[in-house]
Nucleic acid binder design. Structure first.
Length: 454
RNA sequence: GGCCCUAUCGUCUAGCCUGGUCUAGGACAGCGGCUUUUCAAGCCGUUAACCCGGGUUCGAAUCCCGGUGGGGUCACCA
């Protein structure tokens, strides 16, 4: 299907009339993956012919979003900077009679528009994912192609640009299928070659309608701000309407880096029907990518999403954060969850000794205070013997477990955990102690003991 | 409504082109269990689908036809 002799050229052509949408991001991604897989040229073309609706801030949002996702383009063009090109083509169309100026009334005022003289031929094209599609173009009438020689409308601008930029594959949303016959008619009038069309299925909301604002977060920046990893979003979006080769495998096979996606991507495995944007799967995928993050990156993410009230705690410092980071990350779907954890008080104990307003909670079920104090003392004594550099979860477990087994795990482990966190819910005592460090662990153990003895 | 696209577990999908190996596979979610006994995570197990009706064929999820459902599109927007 794809001839090797011809260099592949694709383009992603968003119009900057709103925030960068995840559906658009997926279209960009499919173009990018396909192009990189085949070693072609990927063009970003800003379609800002409608000056009234196009905004610079939206263009910036698109650029920022693409860069965050790791989707790099080879060329950047803006239609607003190509009026000379359009003028030439439109004048030619006018000259040879395939287009004509028509004075028309609109909103009470009369103005000239340029219409295409429709040859009324049936148009058939071969879509790379759907096969042959035929349209009877007579119903299109003499459609308007420009407001003036310097103001082409969407369909014309696209055709001129795709021709000028030698685009070989037009990969875009299914909602553009109905534009295709108009564009083909224009190509024929302009004597331009016809690219290969690849219409990809739409991204749908859970109710099967087009994904829109009322369904929640739809823009790329919202997902970034909520603490999703770009690699997770990219991975998730790639799997919406596409799957890697045969036997789409087990769980691990679905987790792919950008590089792996590029290696596997091709258009023959693109789905024909719309795909629902399933937030739960995105969250799961985000977890998977968080788990694969190198320690250093993980710390950076955790730190950057840490709310100020936690970050200003007395013991909030780099070494402690480094030890707590993976423990915190283990418990979240997105880095934005750090905020929720902080609000629930599940973070403060990492960076400040907890108060013990309810000493009775230190004792496990029916255990007496005296007994609990003894266990706390003994645990502290055992841990004191562990060297600083051996103060890791595995060693701590090995040291504490025999004693806990002997006196009842709950009786020992619960008060130790509670002494360290001051919380009903928290990580287990061993990892917690490791995260806190030896000195702090012993300090909290004795603080808890004092609270009990009061 | 016209035109166009589309149809496998609740969701994303494998299989369909090259009919049998499909008592339809995987993943997310759900459910159940396990654990260094809290919570989370993790691990193990498990429920669940070929839209309907006709054909073709020894045999159809796979091929053909017709319904029905879903979606898109019908601008001097893109």
């Amino acid at each position: 299907m794809i001839s090797d002799s011809k260099k592949i050229v694709t383009r992603f052509a968003p119009s900057p009339t709103g925030p960068f949408h995840v559906g658009a991001a997926r279209t960009a991604l499919f173009n990018f993956l396909f192009t990189r897989h085949h070693g072609g040229v990927f063009i970003l073309r800003i379609e800002d012919t409608d000056s009234a609706r196009s905004k610079k801030e939206y263009e910036e949002d698109i650029l920022r979003g693409l860069s965050w996702l790791g989707i790099a383009y080879d060329e950047l063009h803006r239609q607003s900077e190509r009026t000379a090109e359009y003028r030439g083509s439109i004048e030619r169309l006018l000259r040879d009679g395939t287009a004509y100026v028509s004075a028309e009334e609109r909103d009470g005022a009369t103005s000239d528009v340029i219409r295409f003289r429709n040859p009324n031929q049936p148009v058939t094209f071969n879509d790379a994912v759907r096969g042959e599609i035929t349209f009877d173009t007579t119903e299109l009438k003499d459609f308007v192609i420009a407001r003036s020689v310097e103001e082409p409308l969407y369909n014309l601008a696209v055709v001129i640009d795709d021709g000028a930029m030698r685009v070989t594959h037009v990969i875009r949303g299914e909602d553009h299928i109905s534009n295709t016959p108009r564009q083909i008619l224009l190509q024929r009038a302009l004597g331009l070659p016809q690219p290969i069309y690849v219409h990809i299925p739409l991204v749908l909301a859970p109710d099967r309608s087009k994904l829109s604002k009322r369904h929640g977060a739809t823009s790329v920046s919202e997902y970034r701000d909520a603490g999703y990893l770009p690699e997770a979003l990219v991975n998730f979006l790639a799997l919406l309407g596409w799957s890697p080769q045969e036997g789409a495998g087990d769980e691990a096979a679905e987790i792919m880096s950008l590089g792996e996606l590029i290696a596997h991507f091709d258009i023959d495995k693109i789905q024909k029907s719309g795909a629902i944007f399933n937030l739960e799967k995105l969250q799961w995928m985000n977890r998977q990518h968080i788990r694969r993050l190198p320690q250093e990156k993980l710390e950076q993410y955790v730190a950057s999403f840490m709310p100020p009230d936690v970050a200003s705690l007395p013991q909030y410092d780099p070494p402690r954060l480094a030890r707590a980071a993976s423990l915190i990350a283990e418990r979240l779907k997105t880095f934005g969850d750090i905020r929720t954890m902080a609000d629930a008080g599940e973070l403060t104990f990492f960076f400040a000794a907890p108060p013990y307003p309810e000493p009775h909670k230190l004792a496990w079920r029916t255990a007496s205070r005296e007994e609990t104090v003894r266990h706390l003392e003994e645990a502290a004594a055992l841990l004191k013997n562990v060297a600083d550099r051996d103060f890791i979860a595995r060693t701590i477990t090995a040291v504490l477990m025999p004693y806990a087994e002997e006196h009842g795990r709950g009786n020992v482990l619960w008060p130790v955990r509670y002494a360290l966190s001051g919380k009903d819910r928290s990580p287990d005592p061993f990892t917690l102690a490791a995260a806190l460090g030896k000195e702090e662990t012993l300090a909290r153990l004795s603080l808890a003991r004092e609270a009990l003895q009061k």
